[in-house]
Design a protein around this nucleic acid. Sequence first.
DNA 1: ACTTGACTTAGAGTTTACTCCAACCTGTAT
DNA 2: ATACAGGTTGGAGTAAACTCTAAGTCAAGT
Lengths: 129, 129
Amino acid sequence: MTIKEVCEQYHISPDTLRYYERVGIIPAVHRTKNNIRDYTEQDIGFVENALCMRNAGVPVEMVAQYMRLCQQGDETFLARRDLLREVREGIVKQIEKYQRELERLEYKIRRYDDALVTGKLVWDENETI
Amino acid sequence: MTIKEVCEQYHISPDTLRYYERVGIIPAVHRTKNNIRDYTEQDIGFVENALCMRNAGVPVEMVAQYMRLCQQGDETFLARRDLLREVREGIVKQIEKYQRELERLEYKIRRYDDALVTGKLVWDENETI
DNA sequence: ACTTGACTTAGAGTTTACTCCAACCTGTAT
DNA sequence: ATACAGGTTGGAGTAAACTCTAAGTCAAGT
């Protein structure tokens, strides 16, 4: 699979894909004899993993750390699981934070909905804007 | 309320607070006669709003846009509400994305939990890492 | 009077994660 | 043969959001 095909499938740019390889978020991709990247099933798996973790807000350096562990073999199962658990806690916290902000936001939107009818914007106590 | 007190209350740095003022995320803060920032109730309200929106992942420029609308008076209720609705849609999408990645992550963690018992890491079809 | 500590400014520097560029190679189509 | 489409590299550039620095002001304490 060429770099272009992978890009189209995952909606990312070739530059990003090469960048991911450079920083170790994905290991060196298989090449044709002309030195052109030819993504194997396994390479695609690495790309999916990278995108999954990046989408989850995991910093590039942490994904690289995970990949280094993966390449060190079976003794790193525990370290890998712990890293993924850490990532999970981060996402859970982030979702909770977003949900709190979402509530405040919906409250504000309701206030504006009211204001659009009454012509007057009113906040409950503790809210000023 | 001094800049330091506000910082402590909201766990941000004085630099960040001054930066927020500079870029218009919060309007010019009240000053003492010595030109020292002295946050009023209203200023604090602006700070809370800024932090709420930034925590929700809203870009600085969009918060500034919202604040500009707020300072233009009652004719901008509609525009403000629409901006907040847009922000809300963004957060909802982000939460959904995080929840999808969370599921993949929990699957992986379970696989590692198994591997730590059996000594063998096994993926279902479609997963390689 | 002098030091200390907390504030002020403008502007430069940093970090993260890309994104672009110039120069080059190579197989296929005209 | 030559143009073109698509790849390659190292390295420079960019955007966003801070974060730091230098130089200065000011009030209080010794």
